[in-house]
Amino acid sequence: MILFENVTKKFGEVVALSEVSFEVDKGEFVFLTGPSGAGKTTIIKLILREFFPTEGKIEIMGENISLIRSKKIPQFRRKIGVVFQDFKLLIDRTVLENVILPLQIRKVQSSQIAKQAQEVLKLVGLWERKDLFPAQLAVGEIQRASLARAIIGKPEILLADEPTGNLDPNNSQQIIELLKKINDNETTVLMATHNASLVNLLKERVICLAEGKLISDEKKGKYKLPKFKFEKDV
């Protein structure tokens, strides 16, 4: 489903990822862990084809993303749901209007949109708040709205970039439970987080990164705090 083969990504002289290789199968739930700047978000952006790898090969759902033509990028991205760390909801649209955007983009029929919106908003517990604007919601609710938008199109892959980064433990657990529920329906979930307690809670596969390098990849793993260069320096 997701294949990284010796992937390196450089931004000028800065190396964001260095020869990273891993493979994620269909229906897997994988945590990407590591401290800030480890390369988690870079991996998510590479999967979304926001930019190209400097070296190496990335295959998503069997397609080499470097070979996907610009015109085909929208169709490619429609197969992937994303929960962004900063939510990326449109502030001048209601929860409902935000959540149904992926379906409107695909020109799905209105009746079908209404049905799926109700289903997904009930799943994330926001049906009663569907007509509110993001500014009128609590942070946990905004994150759940973002999650609802990511899953409404029934994506094959769900990417979650620090989805619990701004949440309290209770809200964080709710989000994790929702992600697990989505994963139970054969959706591949790749979640970037540095929250050790959440990683340890689910006992799923853990890919650990530090300074752009993959330092461990363990099935049913635990979050292991990597030794940072700056610690040595300090």
């Binding site: 979304l48 929208p74 429609r78």
Partner: peptide
Amino acid sequence: KEEIEILGLIGAGKGY
């Protein structure tokens, strides 16, 4: 800009 960026990330084509 931000709205356009978000729409692009969730799969909106240039036409949309």
